[in-house]
Design a protein around this nucleic acid. Structure first.
Lengths: 258, 258
DNA sequence: GCTCCGAATTGATGGAGATCAAGAGTCGCA
DNA sequence: TGCGACTCTTGATCTCCATCAATTCGGAGC
């Protein structure tokens, strides 16, 4: 690992509250790798030997069956992925593909498992991370099965807005076809969904989106803290440690809770 | 906890490899409760104070949004549920409702978290369980998004067959309307799906289903070990510790892997 | 036996989204 | 500057599934 990357990695939730000794032991056996865009890092069904830590770029996790393909999530830095497979030393259930040029830290799965067995604090941190990922998936399923395409898009826009600090305009972080896959629809229908949202004050200009009529849009979207992990959570927010909805990104409000 | 229940609970994966001392400490602070059918154990958004262990009966986990409702899974003994919320000491993302009279062991969440911090083996066991649950959800999403209703039903029948030892007839463990919710369709469409499968040798008689023409049915279903957690996994099966697809039931092939 | 109620089936219709096809804008590159 | 490849958009059609409605079936209770 490069010295400049160390602080980013050290700040990962899976190392929260973990001793320097364990941290150094685990990351000692790690490679920093660069990958070009559109590279398959890991294929569904492959054995998983490393925990991946995305430091730069974007990675898509997808599943396949009978020539059909579905996107489960799109990761952005700094995120870990396929932790569950590493913990169980099992085969990957989804494929991982770079969407752009990426910088990825690969940590030995053996090292992870060994460190968990020897350091309860690390094992707890891993369990907490897994819990966040699990809850992220629950949110994803609810989002998919309970909402229609237009509603998913509207809520996605609110999520973006919340992440970017809450102005009245947002910038789409992906190509539209990638966004469509992420939202579980075709590019064609994403276009139509944006057109529909025009009636709710959504003006699209390339990757820039203005949200006039926030009230109207919110009445349509009905964001829900039990699905969308961004909503105003009351003044005394108790630093929920859930992973993000749309990914396992680590942009937590607070640090570790004692 | 009743003495007769102890062995069942002790055999749970979250106690695999765990010392008697930790086991006793954790289960010491536990209540055994009975609930009638159709009781809400836990409502979406509620704080979660206990880890639930289903010893008898059936429990449905569901999510809601704007008068719509979706079933995430149906649990059967012996299963734990809402472990992720317990680990994070967070609010529940789904509701839990009994489908029949149930016997449930409730273990203090504080006790779980404390024991994890003090006993690495327990923390590892919890992490492994969470990993299995996570992978179960990944399977669920792939099943939902990649397959149509008829295909989901066909694969469900194969899963049932595998669990019951592989004869050419299976017994449906739920009412059809519950099964429909589990498979993510309406009761009407489940009926129609069964009718369609008639052409593939599926004969329904109440809750009993005969599968003549297994070959035809399998060609339609295309079961996949990366979605359906039952498929023949090669002779040297390495005791995958994944949770079941349709639930977090614990019917593992092997015990702990060293 | 009977009724009654809910579950299960079957049919008819509607809507959301996928697919197919064509056109319009954009970017990179020679 | 123009070509080519790409994304993005828009329109027409089709498929799957939900919904509404009408029976039929089966068991519980009297």
């Amino acid at each position: 690992m490069r010295p400049t990357d160390t602080p980013k990695v050290r700040a990962l939730p899976i190392f929260a509250n973990v001793s320097d000794e364990t941290f150094n032991r685990v990351t000692g056996a790690a490679y920093l790798q660069r990958f070009p865009a559109n590279t398959t890092l890991l294929l569904e069904g492959d054995p998983v030997d490393f925990l991946y830590v995305l430091l730069e770029g974007q990675v898509e996790l997808q599943g396949t069956w009978k020539d059909k393909e579905t996107t489960l999530t799109i990761l952005r830095p700094v995120s870990t992925f396929i932790l569950a497979a590493v913990v169980l030393d099992a085969d990957a259930l989804m494929s991982a593909r770079t969407l752009e040029r990426c910088e990825i830290l690969m940590i030995s799965g053996d090292a992870i498992r060994t460190a968990m067995a020897e350091d309860a604090r690390f094992a707890v941190a891993v369990a907490r991370e897994l819990s966040g990922c699990y809850r992220g998936l629950v949110r994803t399923i609810k989002n998919q099965k309970l909402r229609g395409g237009v509603e998913r898009l509207a809520n996605y826009l609110f999520t973006l807005r919340a992440k970017s600090g809450g102005g009245d305009s947002v910038h789409l972080p992906h190509e539209k076809r990638v966004l469509a896959a992420l939202l579980g629809m075709t590019p064609e229908n994403l276009s139509r969904a944006f057109a529909t949202l025009g009636g709710y004050g959504v003006e699209v200009n390339g990757a820039d989106v203005r949200l006039s009529k926030l009230g109207d849009l919110e009445r349509l979207a009905r964001p829900d803290p039990l699905i969308d992990n961004h909503a105003p959570r009351g003044p005394s927010l108790s630093a929920e440690a859930d992973a993000e909805i749309w990914s396992t990104e680590h942009q937590r409000a607070g640090g570790a809770r004692s």
